[in-house]
Design a protein around this nucleic acid. Sequence first.
DNA 1: AGGGTTTTGTACTGATCGGTTGGTGACCCG
DNA 2: CGGGTCACCAACCGATCAGTACAAAACCCT
Lengths: 216, 216
Amino acid sequence: MTRVTIRTERYTGAMSTETPTVGRPRAFDEETVLDRATEAFWRHGYEGASLSVLTSAMGINRPSLYAAFGNKEQLFQRAFARYHDTQVANARAALDQPTAYASIEAFLRASADGLTDRDHPAGCLSIQGGLACSPENARISEILAAGRAATEAAVEERLSRAAKEGDLPDGMDPGALARFVMALSEGHAVHAASGASREDLHASVDIALRALALRQ
Amino acid sequence: MTRVTIRTERYTGAMSTETPTVGRPRAFDEETVLDRATEAFWRHGYEGASLSVLTSAMGINRPSLYAAFGNKEQLFQRAFARYHDTQVANARAALDQPTAYASIEAFLRASADGLTDRDHPAGCLSIQGGLACSPENARISEILAAGRAATEAAVEERLSRAAKEGDLPDGMDPGALARFVMALSEGHAVHAASGASREDLHASVDIALRALALRQ
DNA sequence: AGGGTTTTGTACTGATCGGTTGGTGACCCG
DNA sequence: CGGGTCACCAACCGATCAGTACAAAACCCT
């Protein structure tokens, strides 16, 4: 398995040149159409979002798409990076609480809210995008897995700090707890994708938090 | 959304006729090639498993596939039903323990083991099969969601019994707990698909069980 | 051995896939 | 207002998609 790195900052690669001063100006805003592409991938997955689906969702035609984004895979990488910057970043930011308990609660609550936000498709692009793919698109699965692993690493980092501060129940392993939290969040994503309500997910979070409520 | 029912018993529909006494006999065993198809769907998802992938995995050619199974979607339904009968049935059977705690533990342990069984692709067909699909295959997502909902209903049923027997912590809602358990199991499936080990999943189960350890 | 029946394998169908070509249109600069 | 440069758009490309037609092969029965 080749290594995949996730671009979490704003994309500023060579392909996306600064607006030239000559020539016909673009009739679309790159971020706007990227958001629409993100939504299409989110809803249908990488393979399920054909170029016809994408272009009609984005409101541009193929040559414009290819000129602006390179190809389908690169468009997806841009979309996924943007998804990270906007959606995933919310949950990660929620980790910044004074205690481990509060951090995990905030993370799970923010996830549950994001997964059921009516402004977007239900669920999570990191999973819907393509947990399983055709052999020739295996790289997409790797990219998504790397994104999830990065989020889990952020949770673990917060919990490792908590362990050092004596802020975790005795014998609780930060890595295992991070995995538990991420797994639950991913399961919530699956549930959200099949129609679970926000309240449903928060009730599940309530139960999960009992696992942390036993102190020392 | 149209209703989808899951066939959990052995398929005995009209298409799969009894072996005729005349004509050239089949060169393959239907259940054997169905198992291979299941594995291909499991590994690549419904859309990622093209007919070329399927036929070469099954070791038969297209006309044989179509004669035996109808079409790709019907083949998938057969594969999914078989997956339920064999894999999911293990976890459901594990629910049959004397206490709620033991039932949930057994369910989660059996799931974790199944998700990391080296005799099969890692993860869970119910999720990898196609959480998100192209618009024309939306029915596949519904079928899979119905399967997951059926499993969750089985968990809830066991827990409702436990509630009646006073075998759940005070104020614990069976539906919410079932959702929590299923979500965790689904998250474990996502983790397994991206390479988590069996021990990783069991450590996460250990933590989840703490949520139930608080009695009354 | 020969007729009836079913499976097998090759080669095909139209549709759609991701991606590109080439001509036209729209803008800035001189 | 003319030349240069880039974006837009329709139509196209080969490859692959799910699904099928047809003839040869393999069996049972008489």
